[in-house]
Nucleic acid binder design. Structure first.
Lengths: 108, 108
DNA sequence: TTTGACTTGTCGCTTTACGACAAATTTATA
DNA sequence: TATAAATTTGTCGTAAAGCGACAAGTCAAA
C-alpha cells in the first residue's frame, strides 16, 4: 500500500529507469515539482493523468481509480470523516447515473 | 435520495419553516447564495458545516457523512471514474490511520 | 399591483493550485 | 575526495477556483 499517488509515480519512474528530469519532460513538469509530487508535498495535476497513462502505457481507468481513491482518502482523513461517507457516495453515484439516463431519454 | 447536499438543506429549512433570508442570516449567508446552494448551482462551504449542525441541532458526524459523500459522488461522476475507487479509498484511509498511530508512538 | 420569497447574473476579493527558477543537499562515480 | 548528476527545498508570480455581496429579475399570494 502506498501512502499517496506520488509514491506510485515514483515507483513507475524507477521501474522505467527515468530520472526526475526525464520523466518531467514527458509530463511537461519541472523536475522540482515532480519531486514534490513524488514526496507528497504537492498533488499531481488531474489534467495530466492522460499523459501519465500514455507514458507508462497504463489503463486510464485503473489510473483514475488509483488517483481519485487517493484524493478521497485524503479528504476523509483530513476532515475526520467516517468512511460511512463512502457507502453513501456509492449510492449517490448510482442515483446520479440513473437520473442522467432518465434525463437523456427526455432530451431525445 | 437527494441529488445534492443543497436539497438536504432545503428540506431542513422547509421543515423548520424558515425563509432563505432567515436561514441565511443564521448561517451568515446571503439569501441569493443560499438559493444557489439549495439548487445545486454552488457548493455549501465546508467551513460552515458546524453552523449548520448547530442551527438544526444535527450530529456533526452525520452531517459530514452527508456532505462529503456528496462531494465524493460528484467527483467520481464528473470524472467518469469507477466506484472501485471507493473500495481502494477505504483501504487507504485505514492505512493512513495506521501509519499515523505509528508516527504518534515515535513522536512520544 | 404591491409585497415578500426566491432566482439569476455578475463583480471583486480571497484563497488555492501550480508552473518556474534558484539554491541547497544528497548520491554516484571517476 | 572532487565533481557532476540527481534530487530536494524554498519561494515567487500568475492562473484558476471559491465565495460573499449586491442588483435585477421572476413568481406567487393577497
Amino acid at each position: 500500500m502506498k501512502k499517496h499517488f506520488g509514491e506510485y509515480i515514483k515507483q513507475l519512474r524507477n521501474e522505467g529507469g527515468f530520472t526526475l528530469t526525464q520523466l518531467g519532460a514527458k509530463l511537461d513538469l519541472d523536475s522540482a515539482n515532480l519531486s514534490k509530487i513524488e514526496n507528497g508535498k504537492r498533488d499531481f495535476n488531474e489534467k495530466s493523468l492522460g499523459k501519465l497513462a500514455s507514458v507508462f502505457k497504463l489503463d486510464i481507468n485503473k489510473l483514475k481509480t488509483e488517483f481519485f481513491s487517493d484524493i478521497i482518502a485524503k479528504k476523509l482523513y483530513q476532515n475526520g470523516c467516517s468512511t460511512d461517507a463512502l457507502i453513501v457516495a456509492e449510492e449517490k453515484v448510482k442515483y446520479l447515473k440513473k437520473i442522467n439516463l432518465k434525463q437523456t431519454e427526455v432530451d431525445l
